[in-house]
């Protein structure tokens, strides 16, 4: 049986990856907006974000907009590919592909 990527294969990280993958390539999203789109607590999101960051699937950038610190999150090329492979594997497993 094909292995499902354990970094993505957890409900929370799967939802995070799906959300980030729905952004256009080259776009990044603020941490609070991502939190809104996911309905997750900041702590929970940070925890899972750390695991995705360790696998180099997401990049977290801390910048300043004027004097306000802003954290942006985006999927890396590696992360986008991993998510695409993951969904493809799922479809394979479920026999959805021709």
């Amino acid at each position: 049986m094909t292995e499902l990527d354990p970094v993505i294969h957890a409900a929370a990280r799967l939802r995070i990856s799906a959300t980030l993958a729905s952004l256009d390539e080259g776009d990044r999203i603020t941490f609070p907006r991502l939190q809104e789109l996911l309905d997750m607590t900041a702590g929970n999101l940070s925890t899972h974000m750390r695991k995705l960051e360790d696998a180099e699937y997401v990049v977290v950038e801390k910048t300043h907009q004027g004097r306000t610190p802003t954290t942006y999150v985006s999927l890396t090329r590696r992360g986008r590919r991993a998510f695409e492979d993951y969904t493809e594997t799922l479809r394979d497993l479920l026999g959805e592909k021709p």
Binding site: L4, P6, H9, A10, A11, A12, L14, R15, A18, T19, A21, S22, L37, L38, M40, T41, N44, T87, L90, R91, L93, L94, E96
Partner: peptide, 23 residues
């Protein structure tokens, strides 16, 4: 909150679709 328990393949695919629709 959605936790770490790994979902089954069809649950996982449903979760992805549901999340992308919600976004």
């Amino acid at each position: 909150d959605h936790d770490d328990a790994p979902p089954s393949a069809d649950e996982a695919l449903a979760l992805i679709r549901e999340q992308q629709r919600s976004v």
